[in-house]
Amino acid sequence: MTETELRVSKIQNGTVLDHLTAGEALHVLAMLGIDGSGGETVSLGMNVPSDRLGRKDVVKVEGRELSDSEAEVLSLIAPEATVNIVRDYDVVEKRRVERPEEVSGVLTCPNSECITNAGEPADPTFAVLDDGVRCEYCGEIVRDDITAHLGDGPQSV
């Protein structure tokens, strides 16, 4: 049994995010709106040796299953990530994140003049470009530091 598999098997119910880009673990937690205040058990490994990536981060969250829209945004920060859903100590689902054509509901638009920042019933939606994302309402392009534009956490868990 490899060390990674050992770690995966350690939580009872929840999500293990593996193969995260080294150094992005804290951004991933921010994206998921997890700051420990909910009382859930969170563990993370940073710069863990990895055959595939050289170094990687790993995040484990007890009692929380990642939604599809969260996994999509995760792909923007950590394109090599794998999402493991764990129930009763078993990995019941394991998948690579896929870069979607658009992401909705997780990022907020950095353009203060954008209609999505005006308290309207609009789900901020972003087209995914080769090297960034673009607001479908105002056209603003975000290239660097996508995590700076995370909203107040995901609407669905």
């Binding site: 209609i115 309207e120 479908e136």
Partner: peptide, 29 residues
């Protein structure tokens, strides 16, 4: 009142809407 609500109300009055609004993306919304 939100723009979305205004638009829905006006839709009941008219066959088309011409919109000028200070925020980008407002017409799409």
């Amino acid at each position: 009142e939100s723009l979305a609500d205004t638009a829905r109300v006006v839709e009941g009055y008219a066959d088309g809407i011409v919109l000028r609004h200070p925020r980008q993306g407002s017409a799409k919304l």
